[in-house]
Amino acid sequence: MSEEEQAYEPKIVAFLCKWCSSAGSDLAGVSRIQYPANATPITVPCSGSISPLYILSAFNKGADGVLLSGCHIGDCHYIEGNYLARRKIYLIKELLEMVGVEPDRFRMSWVSAAEGAKYAQVVKDFVADLKPLGPQNKLKADRT
């Protein structure tokens, strides 16, 4: 690995459901679990509230990877929000791949409020997968 690659730290935008993953990330913090600081968390009311435009816009604003995390199937605070998210996110994932964006740049996970360790692992894996890809320039806005 070259020095340049080692210095590269991917920027991750993480949309976290306020009822589970957001608390899960908090648990990872208060449990003093060490994990990369690349993810910028954005708390959303529910994974089902995610508009595809949030994801596209994050890439457009320069995110190297986008993570979306919600409650496990059956655990949604709004009963069915994560079922709706699963469908919608499946479609946007397929569309991103079709256009030629690397599939590893976009990830979804189920993390409950008790799974601080899992959240840390998800971010760790994501960062490890993003590093070899390098900066994301495909959808990033060219504002020169």
């Binding site: 595809p52 435009l53 596209l56 457009n60 569309l95 991103l96 256009v99 495909k138 806005a141």
Partner: peptide, 9 residues
């Protein structure tokens, strides 16, 4: 970049 985002949206 904006065109792609528009068409994907």
């Amino acid at each position: 970049s904006e065109n792609i985002t528009y068409h994907m949206t």
